[in-house]
Design a binder for these strands. Structure first.
Lengths: 310, 310
DNA sequence: CACCGTTACGGTATCCGTAAGGATT
DNA sequence: AATCCTTACGGATACCGTAACGGTG
């Protein structure tokens, strides 16, 4: 049994059981991958893949169990390598941040600018996705950390670090009556068609709760993943928008106006998620601290060592 | 980086950094092990071992960190193999139980007899040690489970399953005045020299607490790891013994007498410890259930999945 | 001198890529 | 016809054991 065979297994699963595609990203020939997997099956003495003719159509029951452990081993192996890189301290490495559009667009640019200046040789990459997707990426070791607001880590596989609280504002085309209102109410807001975030994203559930508690049913005519799309449709007059305050920029969004709505909704909390037991490199600690100054290395280490309960 | 290199690393550390001895148990030549370790160091780009001349004298700081991950990986790898064996269901396998003398001598014989009858092809082995040692063995994957009374699993790396409660009796040479007493008191007991378990073992702290609460200082003249040694010295007249009730056998210990002492001390709880996230084979579940009928497969699985808190 | 880790060397097994083969969509 | 996994084959590589080497207690 070799590490590479386990890596192959994970990668093939990640590519929807397509050997050829997996071989590409593994920088290996497709027969090579095939052979190693057959060899692994042979050594373990069981079939991992369900074959339909000459095609993989799924994992067998044992295959799923083996995959789970294989993923743990390969992610540990990657950790080991980056741990070594850390001690070598050669200033190279990679940091992959999985996040949502909102963070990538409004919260991260400043941090990323500072980070890449300080660590020009670290390859930094962003992966966008839904909260569920980005959590998954971190669990599978495809990303080092995730940053988002509505993240559910069912199995406590991640450590969630609160970064900052934020709230919403209401946006509308310039001259819209709502904008004249110094202190908006939920009732007034509910009287207009609303455009806001997609349900799976960025604090949408907090918003719904507020309306529900007042017995109101907001008329959500359109939902989108990101504030830019929302602004576009608000500008077209389809409705008023509810977005994160940080997503409104007086300079850029001159065709729109905004009023504060933080008295209407519970604040939401944006968090960073890290895989439990992951090896965290020095520059990763610094990245986190740049994003949320409260999260110093000591604070993060304590959180990582704490028990998953809670 | 290969799995075998990590295995070599772990094994060498386990053998006090002696390459030659490690090579023996690894069924490999000593130069072979040396070369693989050098290769690992080379690939990681750092020294893992501190060399004093031509001898290993310790692990470097990075070496310790690498070792920790290497141990996780190798134990996962063993899990993976036994998982495969389980699905193959070929009825073979191995079960290593780390335990203290008391359990091995008095609680386990019956269970082991039943187990080996039911699974003649499973290689069952016992490893004796102090509570600290056997916990360590399970954490390092050298044993599948540990059974003991005073076990401290500081990092919640193990799941501790309560098996049964037990209490003590006082033993003395036949005709000793204490034996005539129908209901012993701590004061009477404290008037005699006492022989009992070593501090690190089997419920000794429970005993101390009872004396302390009454403001008594027992005169412990001798401590031992096992009840057999205690009995020997009690028979020689060096003092009275306090041992687990199950350790006294009316038939075998005809030169001694015993009186119940369960009203004097808090009961102690014997527990089974399993590594969290370990793959547990069917016959292991059965072994545990044979030892503690309350611990059915369902109960154990639930405990294994629960959060480490508490 | 005994012990220990490293280096040298040769045989063998393993791995990998190219090319070709059957099967499915 | 295109895609996909497996088999066949040849070359390069890596691994492993024996033997020899250089320090150390």
């Amino acid at each position: 049994m070799k590490l590479q065979q386990l890596r192959y297994l994970c990668e093939v699963v990640r590519h929807d059981l397509n050997l050829s595609k997996a071989a590409m990203t593994l920088h290996a020939s497709q027969p090579g991958v095939s052979k190693q997997l057959l060899q692994l099956e042979d050594e373990l003495g069981l079939r991992l893949f369900v074959r339909s003719g000459k095609r993989f159509s799924g994992l067998t029951e044992p295959g799923k169990a083996v995959l789970a452990i294989a993923q743990r081993i390969t992610s540990d192996a990657t950790d080991l390598k980056s741990l070594a890189a850390e001690y070598r301290d050669d200033g190279t490495g990679a940091l992959t941040v999985a996040t949502t559009h909102t963070q990538a667009r409004y919260a991260l640019p400043d941090v990323i600018l500072r980070f890449t200046r300080k660590y020009p040789r670290i390859r930094l990459s962003l992966r966008q996705g839904s909260p569920a997707q980005i959590v998954d990426q971190v669990i599978k070791g495809q990303a080092d950390l995730c940053i988002a607001t509505e993240v559910h880590d069912a199995d406590h596989q991640l450590v969630m670090l609160p970064c900052y609280e934020w709230n919403r504002c209401v946006i509308a085309p310039r001259g819209h009556p709502l904008l004249a209102n110094p202190r908006l109410t939920l009732e007034e807001l509910a009287a207009h068609p609303i455009i806001t975030y997609d349900f799976a994203f960025t604090g949408r559930s907090t918003m719904n709760k507020a309306f529900e508690q007042r017995g109101l049913t907001p008329d959500v005519v359109l939902t989108a993943i990101d504030a830019d799309v929302i602004k576009t449709y608000v500008a077209l007059g389809l409705g008023v928008g509810i977005i994160a305050r940080m997503a409104f920029d007086t300079d850029r969004d001159q065709n729109l106006g905004a009023v504060d709505a933080s008295h209407l909704f519970e604040p939401s909390v944006t968090r960073i998620g890290i895989r439990r037991r992951a090896f965290v490199r020095k520059f990763t600690y610094e990245f986190i601290e740049m994003f949320a100054p409260r999260l110093t290395r000591a604070v993060i280490e304590e959180a990582l060592e704490s028990s998953p309960a809670g």
